[in-house]
Amino acid sequence: MSPAVELADEVLAVRAATGDTTAFETLVSRHEGRVYRLACRLTGSDTDAQDVLQETFLAVYRGLASFRGASRFSTWLYRITTNAALGHRRARRRRPTESLEEFLPRFDEDGQHTPEASELRAASQADALLDGKLLAEEARSALERLPDLYREAFVLRDLEELETSEVADLLGVDAATVRQRVHRARLMLRGYLSHLVGAKT
């Protein structure tokens, strides 16, 4: 194997399936960061994310023979990771969280935004106005407060930046449903940013 050529995931998967441990290790090294990040975002827990990381690559290892390149390797990997993360969420008894509904946009009787433009703009400046550590904590806890269906769609579409059609395929719903869920999540989280910087939502 020439070091100058970066082999496609699908090629490495085929090699790994025939017992090439170097090929498997390359797949692990290439994707562990992405898998861990996705697992953190979906489970909201470093400990769960570490478990999901291990389960995911074990499932990849054991499933290599059945991965025939029908989909992209990354799509297959995202599916395994997402399922493992959702399994962990279901297994864990969670404290009920407070809804983010109160941060949805507000309109007057004519359907016009209630807050002034200057208030509405504040959300977009939250990263400049807030301490990074505080924002990281708030971002994680707010994700936990989203309904599960909205969180999954928002994480995959907006944080992992998959195509809407790919998210639809992963979650087994149509693209319009993905857009609706991502939209609801964005509305709540945008309002939450406004709230954090002390502006009207």
Binding site: Y36, R37, C40, R41, D46, A49, P105, H113, A117, S118, E119, L120, R121, A122, A123, S124, A126, D127, G132, L135, A136, E138, A139, R140, L143, F154, D158, L159, E161, R186, L187, L189, R190, L193, S194
Partner: peptide, 19 residues
């Protein structure tokens, strides 16, 4: 102004949750 916040939200969350 609302749209500015709406489109900034994914970007801000990506950066804040990039473990």
């Amino acid at each position: 102004a609302f749209v500015e916040g709406y489109v900034a939200t994914p970007r801000i969350w990506r950066a804040a949750t990039a473990a």
